[in-house]
Write a protein that binds this DNA or RNA. Structure first.
Lengths: 181, 181
DNA sequence: ACCTACATGTAACCCGTTACATGATTTG
DNA sequence: CAAATCATGTAACGGGTTACATGTAGGT
């Protein structure tokens, strides 16, 4: 699903500006898709050209003006039919796991730092998802998807906490760094 | 981490052809990175031009000729220093979860099919990872990364199995499809 | 007969990231 | 006084996917 489609999805939840949609990609959408301003703003432009959304400038005091987008009827329809034909593709790209895969080529301190960092990141994103899951504006689908994200990340966190010590011990004992020809 | 770097990583494990590296991306690497022929072959070309790998054609009977690549000393060094500076980035893109997020806009049968499909996919990839984890050629890092993948996917699978029935019941009861203006 | 596995490669195209450009206001 | 937040946008660049091109051997 590309940024354009997810923007339609965001606007299905409520009218919003590009900036606000970005925050959605960093919160409720974060466990299944990321997007930057460089893809969101052009996406919104194209959607407007295609007549799938409309925009309206809202002036604010002491803040820059906002461009609030809203779904049109055809935007709504297009989103529905896109959902109906979207295959449930998955692709994860984790440099963390890639680095773990080649752990023997890392220094123990680097490996340990990587794991601690990842644990901290997991804590943070689980906390964020948990606070989202308490919002009462969430539809049942959104709530379920967020809980699924929490369950997945929690399992990862627990696995790391349960096994990191043994892994690091093994790593520093087997010191592969000194192996030369 | 781009395809080029992961190709160096693959060749660090053992000499291989592009076709064999592709199989690695579909098995041991699959839970953290995917790559197609269209990125692997050009990556290998560039690596050879840069002197990081060498190639050697191996003729076979009843099979097409293979081009076996091997890491050079400088390829090995480059891979090591890349690992040392690679930040542990993560980005997951899951259209399955996106679809779940907007479950209210789906028909119950489609939603149910999506979940069953995803459960089947999880079973399959967990099975594959389990068989990989039993290979004795695996280094400790690779073994740990595969077990982490199994733990993560198993948690997802169990969450879905434990909660799908309630979710689907709620979905079909709350029939949102009939809501019109 | 047909599909799958083996095996390598090219090229168009799409999408998205990164970095830049601008500028007020609030928080530390 | 510096940094983050609010707010929108553009353009270059890079990376990867998809689809095409080609051909043999073995299984159903």
């Amino acid at each position: 699903m590309d940024t354009k489609t997810l923007c339609l999805g965001a606007l299905h939840l409520c009218d919003a500006s590009g900036y606000e949609i970005k925050k959605l990609f960093e919160s409720a959408f974060s466990h299944f898709q990321k997007a930057s301003f460089g893809s969101i703003y052009p996406a919104l432009d194209k959607l407007e050209q295609q007549g799938l959304v409309t925009s309206q400038v809202e002036l604010q005091e002491k803040r820059p003006a906002k461009k609030i987008y809203a779904l049109t009827e055809s935007g709504h329809q297009v989103f529905l039919s896109t959902l109906a034909v979207t295959p449930p593709t998955e692709s994860c790209r984790s440099d963390f796991i890639a680095l773990i895969f080649f752990a023997e080529l890392l220094k123990t301190e680097q490996l340990s730092g990587l794991i601690e960092q990842h644990i901290a990141d997991l804590h943070q994103s689980i906390g964020m998802l948990q606070s989202i899951s308490q919002e009462d504006t969430l539809g049942p689908g959104a709530a379920f998807s967020v809980k699924l994200g929490i369950a997945t990340k929690t399992a990862r966190l627990e696995y790391l906490q349960a096994n990191k010590a043994a892994f690091l011990t093994q790593h520093s004992t087997g010191e592969n760094q000194g192996v030369t020809t």
